[in-house]
């Protein structure tokens, strides 16, 4: 498999960030494979922890990720209705190679969430596993590793990182 260039991956990740910041979440979900995983581990866990035996903040398979998107579209999802303003900054993108048929990519992120006069920052690194299809790249796995000591004061990860 030929690896994508960094600029191709950057374009793809910037597109993902743009969809998130514009709350186009159904389109965002289309960037994911049907066997996708989306994870946010708790901040006291080692980087390679597994949700099979450790408590995460989020460990979604595709079914739950799709439900998460449906929930985020509802007025009864009170923590994100009214919607918060978000800004996803993606940086330090590196294409590391191929792992078990997936393209391994890492990047740094800073995500800002503003609501009710508070702006909270989520900062950390993304560990992506991407796949190529005819239309371009798809996300098979996204793990968001927070460089935080817990969610204080953020309180929740009700947005998508």
């Amino acid at each position: 498999m030929s690896l994508p260039t960094r600029s191709e991956v950057e374009d793809f990740l910037y597109q993902e960030a743009d969809l998130l910041d514009n709350w186009k979440l159904k389109e965002w979900l289309q960037l994911y494979t049907k066997d996708a995983e989306y994870q946010v581990p708790s901040t006291d866990l080692p980087k390679d922890a597994s949700p099979v035996d450790s408590l995460f903040y989020i460990a979604d398979d595709y079914v739950r990720l799709e439900q998460r998107v449906i929930r985020l579209g509802k007025k009864s999802m009170h923590s994100e209705y009214p919607r918060s303003k978000t800004r996803h900054l993606v940086t330090n993108v590196r294409v590391l190679g191929e792992v078990e048929g997936d393209i391994q990519v890492t990047a740094g992120f800073a995500v800002f969430r503003t609501k009710w006069g508070n702006t909270d920052t989520f900062v950390g690194s993304y560990d992506y596993r991407l796949r190529r299809n005819e239309g371009g790249l798809l996300i098979r796995k996204k793990r968001c590793l927070l460089d935080l000591d817990g969610l204080r004061p953020q309180g929740r990860v009700s947005i998508l990182l």
Binding site: P41, S42, T43, D44, L45, A49, D53, S54, L55, F56, Y57, N118, D149, G150, L151, R152, P153, Q154, G155, R156
Partner: peptide
């Protein structure tokens, strides 16, 4: 179990 959820509420 491993993993502790630490958060805050305003």
């Amino acid at each position: 179990l491993k993993g502790m959820q630490e958060y805050a509420i305003r």
